[in-house]
Lab assay of single mutants.
Amino acid sequence: MDVFMKGLSKAKEGVVAAAEKTKQGVAEAAGKTKEGVLYVGSKTKEGVVHGVATVAEKTKEQVTNVGGAVVTGVTAVAQKTVEGAGSIAAATGFVKKDQLGKNEEGAPQEGILEDMPVDPDNEAYEMPSEEGYQDYEPEA
């Protein structure tokens, strides 16, 4: 019985440690998101679009440190934060509304985080759909 109880105690310690790591990862992701939003706020009209992409990228980098179902929630929060940063930029006159959601080359930025393969159960990952990809044929 002692062996059984000791095993359960060790398992509990492992769960607590994993929860603490997840909590730490979420806190880091939130900190990076805040950094990115402050970065966007300090940019001029020309830099705002690039700044919004930076927020998304920093958040995406930190999301990889967070495991399990938390990833889905962090990704949703990050996307809403990026959308909010863009709205703030438009409201303050840093950028025109028609410039939001495009990178410096004018290509749409939507789907940055949505296409990231995420499995809350950590069982399997699927690649994003290939609808947006084109076949590449090298020139002879």
Rank of each mutant, 00 (worst) to 15 (best):
V70F: 05
A124Q: 10
G84C: 01
E28S: 05
T59P: 01
G132Q: 11
V77D: 02
G47E: 02
Q62G: 01
N65L: 15
E20P: 00
G41D: 00
A69N: 07
E123D: 04
T64F: 06
G51R: 06
A124E: 13
A29H: 04
V55L: 09
E130D: 07
E139A: 05
K6N: 08
A76V: 10
V52Q: 00
A124M: 03
G86R: 15
S9V: 02
P117L: 07
S87K: 04
L113M: 07
S9Q: 07
K58W: 02
L113P: 05
G36R: 11
V55C: 06
F94P: 08
I112L: 14
K32E: 00
P128G: 02
K12D: 00
E35D: 03
K45Y: 08
V16S: 04
V71R: 13
G7N: 13
G67L: 07
G132V: 02
E126N: 14
K80Y: 04
K21R: 06
N65W: 15
K96Q: 06
G47C: 14
G101C: 03
A17C: 12
E57P: 03
M5C: 00
A17G: 11
M1A: 02
E13A: 05
G68Y: 11
V74F: 14
G51V: 07
V26N: 00
E20G: 04
A19Q: 01
E114G: 11
G132T: 14
Y136A: 09
H50S: 06
L8N: 00
L38E: 04
V77I: 08
Q79H: 05
K58F: 02
V40L: 07
E104V: 06
E123T: 15
T92G: 10
E131A: 09
G41I: 07
I88R: 03
E123K: 08
S42K: 08
A107Q: 10
E137S: 06
N122C: 11
K60M: 05
S87E: 01
A19D: 01
D115H: 07
V70W: 03
Q79F: 05
I88N: 01
E130W: 07
T75N: 11
M5P: 00
E137V: 13
A90L: 15
E130V: 06
I88Q: 03
L113W: 01
Q24P: 12
T64R: 13
S129Y: 07
L38I: 04
T59R: 01
V77L: 08
T59N: 02
K60I: 13
T44S: 06
A53Q: 02
F4M: 05
D2R: 04
V15I: 13
M5F: 09
D2H: 14
G93V: 06
A85D: 14
D2K: 06
E28G: 09
A29K: 06
E123I: 15
P108Y: 09
T59H: 02
A56N: 04
G31M: 00
V71D: 02
A30E: 00
T59M: 15
G51H: 01
A56H: 08
L8S: 00
D115K: 13
V48M: 12
K32Y: 15
K34W: 02
A53C: 04
A78M: 14
G86P: 04
N65M: 05
T44K: 01
A53R: 15
Y39D: 14
Q99M: 11
T92N: 03
G67N: 01
G86Y: 12
A19K: 12
D121T: 06
E35L: 08
T75R: 05
E137W: 06
G25F: 12
F4C: 05
V48H: 00
K34I: 08
G41W: 04
K97P: 09
T54H: 10
N65G: 08
T92C: 04
A30W: 09
T64K: 12
A140F: 12
T64N: 07
D119Y: 11
H50L: 11
K60H: 07
E57W: 09
G47S: 14
V66F: 12
A78Y: 14
E104F: 09
T92R: 02
V71W: 14
L100S: 07
K23Y: 09
T44P: 01
K34Q: 04
E126H: 14
N65P: 02
V74H: 04
A124N: 15
A90Y: 14
M1C: 00
E28H: 00
F94I: 08
P120D: 13
D98I: 11
A18C: 04
D119L: 09
E83F: 12
E130F: 09
Y125D: 08
V63D: 02
N122R: 13
E137P: 08
D135W: 06
I112V: 15
T81S: 03
Y125F: 14
Y136I: 02
Q109M: 10
D135P: 07
G51C: 15
E61I: 11
E57D: 04
Y125P: 13
Y125H: 09
Y125N: 06
E131H: 09
D98V: 11
V16Q: 15
V16P: 01
A91S: 05
G25E: 07
A27S: 10
G93K: 05
G101V: 11
K32F: 13
A76R: 07
K6L: 05
V74C: 08
V66E: 01
E61T: 06
V74M: 09
T33I: 07
L100A: 04
N103G: 13
A19V: 10
Y125E: 13
V82H: 06
T59L: 04
L113R: 11
A78P: 00
P108A: 12
T75G: 14
G25S: 13
V15N: 00
K23W: 12
V66T: 03
A124Y: 06
E110G: 06
G67I: 12
D115F: 05
V48Y: 04
G7I: 06
A69Q: 10
E61K: 11
G106E: 12
E61C: 10
G41K: 13
E123R: 08
E105V: 07
F94W: 05
A29G: 03
V82T: 03
V48P: 08
K58Q: 05
K32G: 01
G51N: 06
T81Q: 03
A19E: 00
V63H: 00
T59K: 01
N122W: 02
A107F: 13
E130C: 06
Q109G: 02
A78D: 01
P120R: 07
E83C: 04
E20M: 07
I88K: 02
M5R: 02
D119E: 08
G7E: 05
E126A: 04
T75A: 10
K23N: 04
G73C: 15
G67S: 12
E61P: 03
E110A: 10
D121L: 11
A140P: 13
V37H: 00
V15Q: 01
A11D: 00
K45N: 02
E57Y: 03
K32H: 07
D98P: 08
T64M: 15
G14F: 11
A89S: 08
T72A: 12
A69I: 15
D135Y: 14
K60Y: 12
V63S: 02
G25L: 15
G25M: 14
A76C: 09
A19R: 04
G47V: 03
T75F: 15
Q99L: 03
D135E: 09
G51T: 10
M5D: 01
N122D: 12
G132A: 10
Q134N: 11
D135Q: 15
T22H: 03
M5E: 01
G31A: 15
E110R: 04
A17T: 01
A56D: 01
A76K: 13
Q134I: 05
G101K: 10
A76H: 11
E137Q: 10
D121H: 06
N122M: 05
A107Y: 10
P120H: 05
T59G: 05
V16A: 10
A89P: 05
K21Q: 06
V3A: 06
A56E: 01
G36V: 13
S9A: 02
A78G: 05
A140K: 14
A53M: 11
A27M: 14
T54Y: 11
P138N: 12
E104K: 00
V70I: 15
A90W: 15
K80T: 04
K21Y: 08
Q99A: 12
V52D: 00
V49Q: 15
G31C: 09
E139C: 14
T81C: 13
Q24D: 06
G84A: 03
T44L: 05
E126F: 13
P128T: 05
G132D: 10
A29W: 09
D2A: 03
V16D: 01
A107P: 07
G73I: 10
P128N: 10
G106Y: 04
G36M: 11
P120C: 10
I88E: 03
L113T: 12
E114C: 06
V40F: 12
